[in-house]
Structures are given as structure tokens and as C-alpha cells.
Amino acid sequence: MPVERSDKDMLPAMMETKDLSIASTAMKTAGLEGMMMPGGKYTLFVASDTALNATSPDMKNAMREKLNDKRVAREFVNGHLVNRMVTPDELTDGRMLTTLNGMPLKVSRAEGKIMLDDATLLKAIETNDGIVYVMDKIPSAIGGMMEQMGMMPPATRNFISSHAYELN
């Protein structure tokens, strides 16, 4: 998996990265513009714009609507964020990670790929305040969180979990 390096914090680095505008917007709405969290390094897992744009229009509309609420946006981002920087070497097969909202995510390695639940990690961006992993789809655990938040109808979750989308 390629690792890019940025001399910026997560959000500014994401804003400059092709295919991460949807995740960047969610982070801005959550009030994380200009910094992630003071005094630490974090790991953020985000689906690419390509993956999110391949979802249903109903899901995209529900996400836009829900993410306009700062409290919901922060909860959403916390479901993608781990309270320490986890490097690619530390993403070992079977490792369990826990997001800031307590959700468990399982790492697996197979055929040269690193996966988070059922999503493949396409690349990493190392920043001043941590690392951002770009995924080919929404992992099943995060999809479940989105469903509970009213962002993803169950039929959409089933569709997403059976398809993977690569960056262009």
C-alpha cells in the first residue's frame, strides 16, 4: 500500500488529496477544521469519494442532510477515528482497533492487501497529527453505524458490502 507524506495536519492534507472531498466536508462540519485533536496523533479511516459516489442517491442525500448537524457529524467522524497513530506495519492480521465512539474494527491481511473489516485500504497519508487511510468502500462496521444514524438504508448497506470501488 502506498504511503504519502504531508507536512500538514489531517484535514488540510485531505483537502489537497484527490478523491477525499466528501470526508473533508464531514470533518469540517464536525468542527475539526484546522486541527484534529490537540496534543496527539490519530488514525482516520475514510472511504474515497469514488466509493461514496457509487452509493445510492438516497444514501448520499441522507448523509448530506445528517452531516449538516455538527453533533451528528462529530459522532460520524468519531466512528472513523482511532486515538493513536497506527502505522501500516502495525496493521497486522487479526488486530482489533477501537474507534473514539467505541466501535471495534478488525484488520486482516490477505494476498498482499490490508483490509479493515471488508474494505481494502488503498493508500495512507501520513500527516503532522497522524495518518489517514483511504478505503475502497465503507467497511461493514461503519456501515452499521451509518444505518443507526439514519444515513444508510439497509438495502444500500447490502449493496455496498458486496461491491468494492477502486480509485481512478
Score class of each variant (00 low, 15 high):
residue 46 V to K: 02
residue 83 N to R: 06
residue 50 T to C: 02
residue 60 K to F: 11
residue 88 P to N: 06
residue 77 V to P: 13
residue 69 D to P: 06
residue 99 T to M: 11
residue 54 A to F: 01
residue 69 D to Q: 10
residue 82 V to F: 02
residue 42 Y to W: 06
residue 69 D to R: 02
residue 58 D to C: 10
residue 60 K to S: 10
residue 70 K to P: 15
residue 89 D to H: 06
residue 44 L to G: 05
residue 59 M to Q: 15
residue 57 P to E: 10
residue 47 A to R: 01
residue 59 M to A: 15
residue 77 V to N: 02
residue 86 V to S: 01
residue 68 N to R: 11
residue 87 T to F: 10
residue 42 Y to A: 00
residue 93 D to F: 05
residue 64 R to F: 10
residue 42 Y to L: 08
residue 49 D to S: 02
residue 46 V to R: 05
residue 55 T to P: 06
residue 45 F to D: 07
residue 90 E to K: 02
residue 60 K to E: 00
residue 56 S to T: 15
residue 76 F to Q: 07
residue 47 A to P: 15
residue 87 T to M: 14
residue 98 T to A: 08
residue 54 A to C: 07
residue 84 R to S: 14
residue 83 N to K: 11
residue 43 T to F: 03
residue 78 N to L: 07
residue 68 N to V: 09
residue 91 L to P: 11
residue 57 P to L: 12
residue 80 H to A: 09
residue 46 V to D: 04
residue 54 A to L: 10
residue 92 T to V: 15
residue 76 F to N: 06
residue 71 R to M: 04
residue 98 T to E: 09
residue 66 K to R: 15
residue 99 T to N: 08
residue 73 A to I: 14
residue 100 L to S: 09
residue 62 A to I: 07
residue 65 E to A: 05
residue 79 G to V: 11
residue 64 R to H: 06
residue 56 S to W: 07
residue 51 A to E: 11
residue 64 R to Q: 13
residue 97 L to T: 13
residue 78 N to F: 07
residue 98 T to R: 08
residue 64 R to D: 14
residue 84 R to Y: 09
residue 47 A to G: 14
residue 80 H to N: 09
residue 52 L to Y: 00
residue 71 R to C: 00
residue 98 T to Q: 11
residue 85 M to W: 03
residue 60 K to P: 08
residue 99 T to F: 02
residue 75 E to C: 05
residue 98 T to Y: 05
residue 62 A to E: 13
residue 95 R to L: 15
residue 84 R to G: 03
residue 78 N to H: 12
residue 54 A to Y: 00
residue 82 V to H: 00
residue 92 T to N: 06
residue 59 M to P: 12
residue 90 E to L: 08
residue 93 D to Q: 01
residue 40 G to C: 05
residue 51 A to F: 03
residue 40 G to H: 00
residue 42 Y to E: 06
residue 94 G to H: 04
residue 92 T to M: 10
residue 79 G to P: 08
residue 85 M to T: 12
residue 94 G to D: 10
residue 51 A to V: 11
residue 49 D to I: 01
residue 91 L to Y: 04
residue 85 M to P: 05
residue 57 P to W: 08
residue 53 N to L: 15
residue 65 E to P: 01
residue 52 L to A: 04
residue 44 L to A: 12
residue 82 V to C: 05
